[in-house]
Design a protein around this nucleic acid. Structure first.
Length: 354
DNA sequence: CTCATTTGACCCTC
DNA sequence: GAGGGTCAAATGAG
């Protein structure tokens, strides 16, 4: 590997840089405008900071982090938060240490990266969108949880055996809001199979629209992203299947299938300039409802893609915040197919909120 | 027949 | 010991 940097890494860095430059341009434009300039500037600054951190992390881990070890990501297994931690080199060392520990199988489970999404199911329209996170899951258990009204379901990747893919997820229905499901992902997908491929955008217009957003309307898109952030990352969910209401823990595994590049429409080049904004890995990329039929990338791009939206619980946001500053630990698999996006790339948390 | 789900039992961690 | 997570036999669906 030349210089230890793969093509994917270079592309990633290139995209990061480009995104950062765009954010800078945005900041220049916004500075001085009347519409809450402080907030705008602050948010833009945050975005820039995030890019810088991401680049830092990337460069730190680049040639070094070639081991592709199942990463300790921002999510940080088990303990979400230490909010006030400051980013420091010791954290990097910790990351290295954790990665080394991954060699110990017995610790594998413990160290698996972990993050949470919240998915709301709309009882009216009742479509099965939000659970299509692009992977193929098989339910292996269900458990009544102390203090929880509803049982928790356990899923693992269908290809655990065939491809040694150790990704799992837990689905817990919210007590307060039965329409809300908290999905905790653990581990990364190492499988490359695609039993069920994510459908292409339903219509050329939508695809075109998306494409335009990626190119001609970058600034507009950024504004929408900012708007999304302002809205606490909470977006209404539509067109979801209320079948889940009746069987909350039977998330259809059939509609998933590990994402396959040729169908995912997520090639880096296709993402163009929005790669950093929209190209979030699983579970941040979710197939939109059958109606919208194209991807959503949450939480940063939700406003651009109708249909299903992930929600982040406050704790998750905090976690994100924390990991951004505290856990520059990487889980970047640069061995990925150029068009495949690493499920665990720690964009879930980091920079965008720091 | 094959594969996914269910469910009670077992294991692990705190 | 309690609770959460996983295993694996039984069962069901296609």
């Amino acid at each position: 590997m030349e210089n230890g940097w793969s093509w994917e890494q270079k592309t990633l860095i290139s995209e990061l840089i480009q995104g950062m430059e765009l954010a800078k341009q945005l900041r220049v434009q916004f500075s001085g405008t009347s519409s809450s300039p402080e907030t705008t500037d602050m948010l833009l600054q945050r975005i820039l900071n995030s890019y810088e951190k991401a680049l830092l992390i990337l460069r730190w881990s680049g040639p070094v982090g070639q081991s592709h070890t199942v990463g300790v990501t921002a999510g940080v297994p088990g303990s979400p938060i230490s909010v006030n931690g400051s980013p420091g080199s010791d954290e990097f060392e910790k990351g290295l240490k954790d990665q080394q520990e991954l060699n110990d199988v017995s610790k594998k489970r413990k160290i698996l990266p972990r993050w949470t999404d919240q998915v709301r199911v709309n009882s009216e329209t009742g479509l099965e969108g939000p659970h299509d996170d692009g992977y193929s899951w098989r339910k292996y258990g269900q458990k009544d949880i102390l203090g929880a009204k509803y049982p928790r379901s356990y899923y693992r990747c269908t290809f655990r055996i065939s491809q040694n893919c150790w990704a799992t997820k837990q689905v817990q229905r919210s007590d307060e809001d039965p329409n809300l499901f908290e999905i905790t992902y653990r581990g990364r997908h190492t499988c490359s199979h695609a039993t069920n491929l994510v459908p292409a955008p339903s219509s050329p217009e939508k695809q075109e629209q998306k494409h335009n957003n990626n190119n001609d309307n970058q600034q507009k898109q950024s504004l929408e992203i900012l708007s999304t952030i302002r809205n606490n990352l909470r977006v209404a969910t539509e067109n979801l299947d209320n079948r889940e209401m009746a069987h909350p823990f039977s998330f259809p595994s059939t509609s998933f299938g590990c994402m396959k590049s040729e169908n995912s429409h997520f090639s880096l080049s296709a993402l163009d300039n929005s790669a950093l904004l929209g190209g979030f890995p699983q579970p941040f990329l979710s197939q939109a409802s059958p109606e919208s039929n194209y991807f959503t990338a949450s939480p940063f791009q939700v406003s651009n893609f109708g249909g299903v939206h992930m929600q982040y619980s406050e704790s998750e946001i905090i976690s994100a915040h924390t990991s951004a500053t505290n856990s520059p630990i990487l889980d970047i698999d640069f061995s990925l197919d150029p068009v495949e996006i690493d499920p665990n790339f720690p964009f879930d948390t980091p920079g965008f909120f720091s």
